[in-house]
Amino acid sequence: MIEVKNICKSYNVIQKGEGFRGALKGLISRESEKVQAVKNLSFHIQPGEIVGFIGPNGAGKSTTIKMMSGILTPSSGEILINGRDIHKYRKQVVQDIGVVFGQRSQLDWDLRLGESFELLRHIYRIDKAKYEETLNIMDQILEIKPLLSKPVRQMSLGQRVKGDLVAAMLHAPSVLFLDEPTIGLDVGAKYSLRKFVKEVNEERNTTVILTTHDLGDIEQLCDRIIIINNGELIEDGNLEEIVDRIAPYKTLVVEYYDEKAPEHARCELFFHEANVAKYRFMKKDITAAALIQALSAEAQIKDVSIEEAGIDDIIRIAYGQLKE
């Protein structure tokens, strides 16, 4: 159970002037500006949920994750994990948290993967039998054992992320934070990461909170999404409900025999090139069948297909780049 109550985070960013003059000026006097990265964010997460944090770059997702995992201290507000304030009881609370950053590793560059795990085993006080057991389970999902004797600096990105996932799960945390875990991964590695998240969630009831720009991650993993922009909460809820509410339309793609595309009063022709036309219609206004029938009366249709509004539409709308 995670409770986030009215958290804010602001940074002081030093303003530097441009060019040589600015650099010289910066040596003598510096002006700093307060930047609000996160503004008054509140939400609850139940045990066993998989929650996707989405938002454009610089929206405050990573800052929020870092505050929730005890790395950054909020300027105000509080975060309770399993009922305890993470910043007052950091050492105890982080014992029950696992974190993976897609862009930086917690594995030790100079050591072998197995040695890195062994170090973590000591840090989290995991007993040997439990450690072996977890490693065996992880091996079934991610095939990690062949990598144990490999130095971390020689690993590929995919292997390294696998290593990081296992590292985060060694102490069997009840909450797992994944900050852009699929960044830069190939299809195969993404697949095993998603499989991993699903399995730890189902078998151990681990709560998973992930930030991502990969819509596939969200569609396949998350029951719930939280959309953040400019440090503020924009949407929080069930994925399908949000889709239905924000984008309650479908798109009909029609290929005609000639280049003339008829219009229809109950839908919007928003794309027309050569003999392909795309119509956007509200589900409540007209059914797809009726629309096709009406259109085929006006022009000869070669082929049709229907596209549901997807998560990428939602995100574009929520980010304000597309007007409804």
Binding site: K66, S69, G70, I71, R90, K91, Q92, V94, Q95, I97, V99, F101, R104, S105, Q106, I123, Y124
Partner: peptide, 14 residues
Amino acid sequence: EKGTIAVDLMRPVN
């Protein structure tokens, strides 16, 4: 500088 301080701070250690 590198941001790896995040990793140091997320562990249950001083």
